[in-house]
Simulated scan of single mutants.
Amino acid sequence: MAEDRRGQRPSRGGAGADRGSSAGGRSGSSPRGGSAASRGKDSRGGSGGGKDSRAGDTRGDSRGGQRGDARGKAGSSRGGYQGGGKTPSGSGDRAYRGRSEEKPRTSEQAVYDGPDLPENITGAELDRGIRAQLKGLPEKLAARVARHLAAAGMLIDEDPETAYQHTLAARARASRLAVVREATGEAAYAAGHYAEALAELRAAKRMNGATDYLPIMADCHRALGNPEQAIKLAKSPSVANFSTEAKAEMTLVEAGARRDMGQLDAALRTLELAPLTSKSRSAWVVRLRYAYADTLEAAGRESDALAWFHRTHAIDSEELTDAAARADLLERRQS
């Protein structure tokens, strides 16, 4: 996993907020508003710059029961009468050898089955657009995939690894659906599986042509030690058509990539081209300001950094960052 890059990491779904993605229910201004791995839960404000700088067959649902029945029949035919006593051949008493014990699941079966699904999760929690994309599947299969996606959405913040396992179960059943691959990519990203996230989001992009994933894909390149590739994605022509929030997400990644390469001045210039003085109090503005203050401090410009930590704290009503603490530390250092 990559290090926690405060204020530089894109919020999941930030780039796709206008479209609605696949991990559970991300829409609107929420960083999770349209993603399939997060649309199962109520939308709420995005991740803070300081604290989170950072698919079809039906085999799995029936294999276990059928396999158990077959074993039971085989066991009863081999073991004689279930109640013991004489065998039909009169060879004497023989203990009944019941059905054989269940063999442990293979890793592939475990992935296919996925984590246990809470009974209260029905799949109806998903965004309507997500459910519509599942309608091409057989009814029971679609219902199972929907439940795994909804479960992923409910867990992606509190337990991203389990959320990722739910999306893998959905992918095992419906791997040809872009919405499922998107959900898997976003959950992998949340769980810190950056190579897997990059592969899944690339697959989703090939399927639906969407560019919403570019900021997260770029940040995956950063986490994998390829900042040059992150900057290359940040310069994609499609970024010009992004929403203001999505552009801010890409700016954060590009600036972070510049810092990874030791280019502090270039990182500052990148951030200075963003709407740092926007009157909006949205999370993306908070995160931009925090990243700028943090980069100023890294560049040795402590007085400027102090001013921008104060400006960040002034609009950070939800305390998404530790800007106040950073400002206090700088003040004590300068006194």
Rank of each mutant, 00 (worst) to 15 (best):
V145C: 07
V145R: 01
A146H: 06
A146C: 12
A146S: 08
H148M: 08
L149M: 15
L149K: 04
L149H: 04
A151I: 05
A152D: 05
A152K: 00
M154L: 12
M154A: 10
L155K: 09
D157M: 11
D157N: 14
P160Q: 08
P160Y: 07
T162A: 05
Q165M: 12
Q165H: 11
T167Q: 00
L168G: 07
A170V: 00
A170S: 11
R171S: 10
R173L: 13
R173G: 09
S175P: 12
S175D: 15
R176K: 14
L177F: 00
A178W: 02
A178F: 04
V179R: 02
V179L: 05
V180H: 09
V180T: 14
V180C: 11
E186G: 06
Y189D: 08
Y189H: 09
A190G: 04
A190L: 01
A190Q: 12
A191M: 00
A191C: 13
G192Y: 12
H193G: 03
Y194G: 09
Y194Q: 11
Y194I: 00
A195L: 10
A195V: 03
E196P: 04
A197S: 15
A197G: 06
A199L: 10
A199N: 13
E200G: 03
E200Y: 13
E200C: 07
L201I: 00
L201C: 08
L201P: 07
L201G: 01
R202W: 07
A203F: 04
A203D: 12
A204L: 04
R206G: 03
R206V: 09
M207G: 08
G209A: 10
G209D: 01
G209M: 10
A210Y: 13
A210T: 15
D212P: 09
D212V: 12
D212T: 11
D212H: 03
Y213M: 06
Y213N: 07
Y213F: 10
L214S: 07
L214K: 02
L214W: 02
P215W: 04
